[in-house]
Design a binder for these strands. Structure first.
Length: 777
DNA sequence: AAAAAAGGAAGCCTA
DNA sequence: TTCCTTTTTT
């Protein structure tokens, strides 16, 4: 058992405690992945059939890597029958084989967020509900919330509290929309991401024989990143594990950062309540970072109340102090970071891929891209629009999805007139309305076009276009029976006119679109070859489509990537490590985010995010913040993040000596370093930063303005033309914070007025009127 | 009636 | 900036 050698005491315990419930609290950099893989290997060497092991990971990439590592220990044939993957991919697979229980076709389509949004938009429109009041994105996130908490449409309708809550939030049609959306998805034979979990729960609850089958199969269950599971996932795990209770959860409560998509930190905090006999193992030695970094991260995270007591420590070198840079503007900050990387690259011979720039929001990327490009430093931005979300890629995939599931009317409508073939909006609407009224799918109508056409009032020209289109699709479907997925896709790309359409556009963007389609074809070819190599591989088109639908992590960072600086959000950086980390934009209202300073829970999550960011660093960490930043089309004042003041000074070194200690504020409420002379200093600052952004950033400059407090101001209501006066002393209502009173107004530019509002329950908040959507009461 | 072109508004928190 | 709506052209 060589693989057990080199484990420390707690790692050893985590690997070898095989029976019964086990919780492994794995601090950052404590060798968690190693423990997980060794544990599975150990299970297998102890005679457990891999077929009986279910291992749920956070990303598909993690699953793949882990599987490879396990294969090295126990041999590839043993590793093969392991059930390993994300919740979504594992249960999508199960749902496909059990779909008939739920009345779904086994070839159901999986909708990504964009698809879901399109269906939702259509639903809202069909219900004749004002889309301005019911912003699809907002509605979708509410629906997602319901689903993650197992609130089905029926449960919703039977829950007066929920209905009342939605009414209070000015969304009394939520129930109606929810119902319609679910019906549409069902009709399309499709599930969104949340459905994959919700329907699994339904399957396991309603059909005891199915539950028994999977309980019996998954005798040993491992869940990674347990702190980021949502309620729905929690229930699935609990149901499956309830027979044998061989459940091992691994995670770190200090790194729970996904509550905005439903993750519930109490799943891990209450594990002991669910399984009173559970053994807890804490992995506390950090092998990744210097002592300085570990200690600095510790003192910050210690400010959180909701957490397990841990003593994370490092026995690595003490290391350098964290360097803090105060910059004048976002561009200045980016120049500092780029210059610093350049210098370390030269002076310490660090390769570019040693560096990461981590930020809170994607919109911060641009400044860094500009600065790096100017210095000719190679970089790669992670996140943002992923390859599979590109329009041209989704268009081709739309065709392919339609071939597999012709009831997928979302896919059908996407491509029925793309490339344009004279089937315009009017025709499309007629089709949909008719299909709905007859309770048929659009595909069925097209199947029997000659019969239905008279009822549709189409002229001959339209009928010809429609039947031409549909016979083309049918021909593709026939092709699918004999040809490989790749050949079919190639045929689709050519015969649908898609390639021709894209090639007609010779602009650089157009050329890159063609390349993207080619890239899709390549990845398809790669997928097919890979699947053929595998003994139990499945090179079919449906399998390919499922794979991409679930690979939100396709463009994740690979280790040993090319020699480039990595730029990504902190969320994306979870699980990665870099010798040198620049954590940027450490400003109030940016990090912590202005959306997240409302409640203690939100703030604690931001602090965990900070913890995650800092613990990515192995050798050196740099913090930076700007005193003003180009944001929302305006130059906005910024104050140093409270997290900066939460790091003990012994771990920090200030690069702007004059500023040393100036921002430290022990109240936890942000302070402005210029508070002593508010107006003069601020207007001075404005001038200064304007010159900077002009020369260095070439961005439009805001009109000069005086910044003196005003007694009243107009607010612009973004959702309509109506504007409303808000004055000091007014009682106002906020979507989230509730009722409060305006204490102070600041600024004359109607686009940029800040209000200090004292809320009944949430206390004092600084809000930008334009975004706060306050209602006067 | 459909397609292309132009104009205008909102968008930003995080996968 | 990107997406959506409106206008103009065929």
């Amino acid at each position: 058992m060589d693989y057990l050698k080199g484990l420390n005491e707690s790692q050893y315990e985590a690997v070898t405690t095989l029976q019964g419930p086990l919780m492994v609290l794995a601090g950052a950099g404590s060798g968690k992945t190693r423990v997980l893989t060794m544990r599975i290997a150990h299970l297998i060497t102890n005679g457990i059939d891999p077929f009986n092991i279910l291992s749920l990971t956070f990303t598909n990439k993690a699953a793949k890597e882990m599987k490879e590592r396990i294969a090295k220990v126990v041999g590839p044939s043993n590793a093969k029958s392991l059930w390993m993957g994300t919740f979504h991919s594992v249960f999508a697979r199960i749902l496909r084989s059990e779909a008939h229980y739920l009345g779904y076709p086994s070839n159901f389509t999986i909708y990504d967020q964009q698809d879901a949004l399109n269906v939702l938009k259509k639903s809202i429109k069909d219900l004749n509900i004002d889309g301005d009041l019911y912003k699809p994105k907002k509605v979708l996130s509410r629906i997602s919330n319901y689903k993650n908490n197992l609130i089905t449409v029926r449960a919703y309708e039977n829950n007066p509290e929920l209905i009342e809550a939605d009414e209070k939030a000015n969304m009394k049609f939520m129930g109606k929309i929810y119902k319609k959306y679910v019906e549409e998805c069902f009709k399309n034979g499709s599930m969104d991401f949340d459905d994959l979990l919700l329907k699994t729960n339904e399957l396991l609850t309603r059909f005891p024989e199915v539950l028994a089958k999977y309980q019996d199969r998954f005798r040993y269950i491992l869940v990674d990143e347990y702190q980021d599971t949502n309620h729905s996932q929690y229930l699935i795990v609990k149901a499956l594990a309830s027979k044998f209770e061989n459940i091992c959860v691994v995670g770190d409560d200090a790194q729970s950062i996904y509550s905005f998509r439903g993750a519930n930190i109490y799943n891990i905090l209450n594990f002991k309540k669910d399984y009173p006999e559970a053994v807890t193992v804490s992995l506390e030695q950090n092998y990744r970072s210097t002592q300085n970094i570990v200690n600095a991260a510790n003192v910050v995270i210690a400010k959180n109340l909701q957490q397990f007591k841990k003593n994370v420590f490092s026995e690595n070198e003490v290391g350098e102090k964290i360097k803090v840079y105060r910059s004048l503007s976002d561009a200045d900050e980016a120049n500092f970071v780029a210059g610093n990387i350049w210098e370390l690259h030269n002076r310490e011979q660090r390769k570019f891929n040693n560096f990461a720039i981590l930020y809170r929001t994607n919109s911060q990327t641009r400044a860094f891209e500009d600065a790096l490009r100017r210095k000719n430093i190679p970089y790669k931005v992670y996140g943002g629009l992923s390859f599979y979300q590109r329009k041209e890629v989704k268009d081709l995939l739309g065709y392919l999805r339609l071939l597999v599931n012709e009831n997928d009317s979302e896919a059908l409508m996407r491509i029925i007139n793309f490339p344009t073939r004279g089937i315009g909006e009017t025709t499309q609407n007629k089709l949909i309305v008719f299909a709905d009224s007859q309770n048929l799918s659009v595909a069925k109508v097209l199947d029997n076009l000659p019969i239905y056409a008279p009822h549709l009032g189409f002229n001959n020209g339209v009928i010809t276009k429609l039947s031409d289109f549909w016979s083309m699709i049918k021909a593709f479907q026939v092709l699918l029976k004999t040809e490989t997925a790749y050949n079919v896709a190639m045929e689709v790309a050519k015969r649908s006119g898609l390639i021709k359409f894209l090639k007609d556009d010779q602009t650089p963007e157009g050329i890159s679109r063609v390349e993207n389609v080619q890239e899709l074809m390549n990845s398809m070819q790669g997928f097919i070859e890979e699947q053929i190599q595998l003994e139990d591989g499945d090179p079919s088109l449906p399998n390919f489509l499922e794979n991409i639908a679930l690979s939100a992590d396709t463009q994740d960072k690979k280790n040993g990537d090319e020699d480039m600086v990595s730029l990504m959000t902190i969320h994306l950086s979870k699980g990665l490590e870099f010798p040198v980390v620049h954590l940027v934009g450490l400003e109030e209202n940016l990090f912590p985010s202005f959306m997240s300073s409302a409640t203690r829970e939100d703030l604690e999550e931001e602090r965990r995010l900070f913890y995650v960011a800092l613990t990515r660093a192995e050798k050196q960490a740099f913090f930076s913040y700007a005193v003003s930043r180009f944001q929302w089309g305006k130059i906005t004042d910024a104050e140093p993040s409270r997290f900066l003041s939460e790091v003990d000074e012994e771990y920090i070194e200030f690069l702007n000596p004059a500023m040393e200690g100036r921002f430290i504020n022990k109240t936890g409420i942000s302070s402005n370093i210029f508070d002593e002379h508010p107006s003069e200093m601020r207007s001075f600052k404005k001038v200064e930063k304007k010159t900077i952004s002009k020369s260095e950033n070439d961005k439009p400059i805001a009109e000069p303005r005086k910044l003196k407090p005003v007694a009243s101001a107009k607010i612009i209501n973004p959702s309509g033309a109506s504007s409303q006066d808000i004055e000091v002393g007014d009682k106002v209502r906020h979507d989230r914070f509730g009722i409060g009173e305006v204490a102070f107004l600041d600024g004359t530019d109607p686009q940029n007025i800040k209000a200090k509002v004292v809320f009944l329950h949430e206390g004092e908040k600084n809000l930008i009127l334009k975004y706060a959507k306050l209602t006067k009461i």
